[in-house]
Nucleic acid binder design. Structure first.
Length: 582
DNA sequence: GTAGGGTTAG
């Protein structure tokens, strides 16, 4: 006899075999409870079914489908299912749909779906979910609209997929409409549905509505907390993420790895070192193993909070590293201006059997540009195409224009831009404009600015940059023109804020503000530093504010770590790690 | 017996 079902205990060596479905159920029931029972249906068993006339059971086909690992295997079982008339069984037909969708054979899934005489809620959900998971959001919406048009009851399995689709396509309007639908159908009390709504609002940039839904949830589970923490971080409110992390723990919800990854991500966005140590401390305290995702998140967190050394320590202790881990570490060196160290990692990555991807090369080229490694940057740019068959996208070109532009090699930068086959975006023109500002290349700045303004950018930073370039030349008419353009496009200059962490507290200040109770003392200290600087023979260059800091700390003999909008600067003994390549 | 959520690098 050929056993059709096996049982295995995952804790001990117990094995049992059954030769028919009914005896299998009996065997399972007689297994002592302390054993971890695992049912294993022998793959291919439905093929043997004619040898067991009494055991034609839909469950055998379901289990066979479950074991399929590719589309051709599914097609094979599909054939048998058809031969035995098992498509009449909804569980079998639904499982078939699900498996086709799972292995992205959406056409096949659709064909089965169309041929089914009877469809239940599961059939519809599987189609909606299948399209959503495959990234085919148009079809996902299409199927959902049919459900609504047919007046079928909405359920809590379908809606999260549709919400996910609106979230990824950033379709806030559709999201709001779905929210109304959810409330009408009374599904807003379902934790899957409501967490999906929170996620949808946050990922569409509406943190406020996300929080409202979150606060109104009757049952907040770990996932909903995680979604809200992540949502705040994505909306640029990482401070709220950290507050929420604490509140979650206060309410007795225990974070898992995913929550910690998300919190680390939020902390990276916040850039506060003591918070980074707090998150890492929690990971150590709760003895979470540093798997590849959590470890990588912590590397990035430490790097973005200012400690490339801690990032490297984590990197070195990680057993498993993937391409994201290596790219994160290279990026860490890049943002700290340690270009050579980033490049040193590349051959080590190859040695460990990991191949680079397009993002790895963004990290590599970024590292080159911020360390002024022109020759190396050009070499890697060629290598990515020739040795790894990765075609550069606009981000790679931006790094190259940045690299060449900072080095004042405008001819080469323009030549590269002329030959590029991908569409130029505002980031690329912005990089060129930034380089023009550094080298005072007004003619080229005008050209870059023209293209930039044509793209109707909503980033006020570019307008301000251009206006400053004109102002420096005394071209006040042009300054006014750019400012008018900003007004007509309803853009406002975002005020510059600086954060400083002193004794575990974060202080925020803007130009000339006097909010701090000891602001008199602070300004007095600044005045005395200015005097010291002047005595030291320093003449500040008002276009390049960071040079002030450079000299300042030579006077104070301290190591200063400063983060600007892009990267970190380590000032030590009068020099900056960026080598003035910022 | 068939369908479900949150996570890392630019």
């Amino acid at each position: 006899m050929f056993p059709i079902i096996k049982f295995r205990c995952s804790n001990c060596s117990l094995r049992k075999y059954a030769f028919s479905f009914s005896s299998a159920v009996a065997a399972l029931d007689s297994t002592p409870h302390q054993h971890q029972q695992q049912r294993i249906f022998v793959p291919g068993v439905s093929d043997q079914i004619d040898r067991f006339p009494g055991s034609l059971d839909p469950r055998l086909f379901v289990s066979d489908l479950k074991h399929c690992r590719n589309v051709s295997q599914i097609e094979q079982i599909h054939g048998r299912v058809a031969v035995f008339g098992m498509l009449q069984s909804l569980p079998v037909a639904n499982k078939l749909l699900y498996m086709y969708a799972r292995y992205k054979a959406l056409d096949e899934a659709f064909a089965v779906f169309g041929a089914m005489g009877e469809r239940d809620a599961v059939s519809w959900s599987v189609m909606v979910g299948g399209f959503a998971k495959a990234g085919d959001y148009d079809n996902c919406f299409r199927v959902f609209k049919v459900i609504v048009r047919l007046g079928l009851p909405l359920n809590s399995y379908t809606l999260p997929f549709v919400l996910r689709a609106t979230r990824i396509t950033s379709n806030l309007q559709m999201g709001r409409a779905l929210h109304v639908l959810v409330c009408k159908s009374g599904l807003d009390s379902d934790r899957f549905v409501s967490a999906a709504i929170v996620d949808m609002y946050a990922k569409c940039g509406d943190a406020e509505d996300a929080r409202k839904v979150f606060d109104g949830m009757p049952h907040r589970d770990l996932v909903s907390w995680t979604v809200m923490i992540d949502g705040y971080a994505d909306c640029g409110a990482a401070h709220e993420s950290m507050l929420l992390f604490d509140r979650m723990k206060e309410e007795g919800v225990v974070p898992d790895k995913v929550t910690l990854v998300t919190t680390a991500y939020a902390c990276a966005k916040l850039g506060a070192m003591h918070k980074a140590e707090y998150v890492h401390g929690y990971v150590l305290e709760r003895k979470f193993s540093l798997d590849v995702v959590l470890g990588t998140a912590i590397i990035d967190m430490y790097a973005k909070c200012g400690s490339v050394r801690s990032a490297r320590q984590i990197f070195d202790t990680m057993e498993e590293k993937n391409v994201v881990t290596w790219s994160a570490m290279m990026s860490a060196y890049g943002i700290h201006g340690h270009g050579r160290k980033a490049l040193e990692l590349f051959p080590l990555m190859l040695q460990s059997g990991i191949l680079p991807n397009r993002i790895t090369f963004v990290s590599v080229l970024y590292a080159c540009s911020h360390a002024g490694l022109v020759t190396e940057g050009k070499r890697w740019f060629n290598s990515m195409r020739e040795d790894y068959s990765i075609q550069p996208d606009v981000k790679h070109y931006t790094c190259m224009v940045d690299l060449l532009g900072r080095a004042g090699r405008f001819g080469e930068a323009l030549e590269l831009m002329d030959t590029m086959a991908v569409e130029k975006d505002e980031g690329l023109w912005g990089a060129l404009l930034g380089a023009c500002r550094i080298h005072g290349n007004i003619a080229l700045a005008e050209k870059a600015a023209e293209c930039l303004l044509e793209l109707q950018s909503s980033n006020p930073g570019y307008y301000v940059l251009l206006s400053n370039i004109y102002a420096k030349e005394g071209r006040w008419g042009d300054v006014a023109r750019v400012r008018d353009l900003m007004t007509s496009r309803r853009l406002k200059k975002i005020p510059g804020w600086t954060w400083i962490e002193v004794n575990n507290r974060i202080y925020r200040f803007g130009v000339g503000d006097r909010i701090h109770p000891r602001s008199e003392d602070i300004y007095e200290k600044l005045r005395s530093l200015s005097v010291k600087l002047e005595l030291g023979g320093y003449v500040p260059d008002t276009n390049f504010v960071l040079h002030d800091v450079d000299e300042e700390h030579k006077i104070e003999e301290r190591e200063v770590i400063v983060r600007d909008a892009n990267r970190f600067h380590h000032f030590k003994e009068g020099c900056c790690s960026c080598g003035d390549y910022w």
